[in-house]
Structures are given as C-alpha cells and as structure tokens.
C-alpha cells in the first residue's frame, strides 16, 4: 500500500516536470579539453548557434559509429547552420589515454572534452550512451539516446529548425 503512495507521488512529480518542459540551463561543471586546458560547461549557454553535446566512450561501439557518421557531414552542417559539436568522453582512467590517439587517428573535426569521473554526465542525467543533446540559447531543445544509422539526419533536421 505504502509503495502505491510513493508511486502516485512520484508520478505526479514526473507529470508536473514533463509539463514544465526541459528548460534547465546547462550547469557549470569543470571539464578538460584534449590539450589539458580547463573548460567550463556554462559556455554552452552562451553560444549564438545550436550546440550538440554527444556523450560517448571509447568502448561504446554505437557511439563511435554515430560520431564517425557525423564527422563525414560535419563540415557541411557547420557551413549551413554554424552548429558546433562537443563530444563528451565519459571514459575513466582505463580508457581515457586512448581518447586522444583515437580522435586524431579518426581525424574527427569537432571538439572533444573529458568527463573522467562522469560529473557532467550525472548532472545532465544521462543514463545510457550514446546520448545526444542539442542546446540552444541555454535550453535543451532535443535529446536522443541510442544510435541507429540515419539517426544523424533527424538530429540535423532539428538543428535546421533552430538556425537562421
């Protein structure tokens, strides 16, 4: 019985939250760039154009496919919309040293940031990978978990909606 009570309260909260929409600003979390420089995630709120945040890891097969697929069309996307992609590596110390050689070896053109103890992933409530978020003027306007070939086209349609 008491569980039912919790369930009802939790459902009310969830319904309330979905009604209020995904409106949170990106919180400040210190990440590291591949150069070792510090990067504060509040910067994502201040960009003119939409920003794609892609949570990935070196051991996540679908993540690598998604980022490879986006890399193939990234120059066109940027030219047409000015969109920027930040690939957030959630690798811990087992895989983190593989990130820089992998990114260079694949010739990825976008920025890569390191979230070594998953602080940013936790703050953004990302529970599975790959997850992409699109942030526009401080708001999350699109979110998708998992990748099947072609998902990147849907992502791009969304970006087109929000670019001039």
């Amino acid at each position: 019985m008491r569980l039912t009570y919790v369930f009802i309260a939790a459902t009310m909260l969830l319904v309330h939250l979905s009604a209020s929409g995904q409106s949170q600003e990106i919180p400040s979390v210190p990440l590291k760039a591949l150069t070792g420089k510090h990067f504060d995630t509040v910067q994502f709120n201040e960009r003119e154009n939409p920003v794609i945040l892609s949570f990935w890891a070196t051991w996540c097969g679908p993540c690598l496919k998604e980022l490879d697929a986006i890399n193939d069309v990234y120059a066109d996307w940027q030219e047409e919309t000015g969109v920027e992609l930040y690939a957030i590596s959630t690798d811990d110390s087992r895989g983190i040293k593989r990130v820089k050689p992998l990114v260079n070896g694949k010739g990825w053109e976008f920025e890569v940031l390191l979230d070594e103890n998953q602080d940013f992933q936790r703050k953004m409530n990302v529970v599975a990978m790959p997850t992409v978020l699109v942030v526009y003027k401080g708001k999350i306007i699109y979110q998708h978990t998992s990748y099947v070939p072609g998902s990147e086209n849907k992502l791009y349609e969304k970006i087109l909606e929000y670019s001039k």
């Binding site: 050689p101 990114v103 070896g105 010739g107």
Partner: peptide
C-alpha cells in the same frame, strides 16, 4: 607512465 603522440590521421599511446 603514459607516453603519446597524436596528429591528424595518427595517434599512438
């Protein structure tokens, strides 16, 4: 100890 070298198209660690 980690040692590495990376440039576009090549990465070693």
């Amino acid at each position: 100890l980690d040692l590495g070298y990376a440039r576009k198209g090549l990465g070693v660690n």
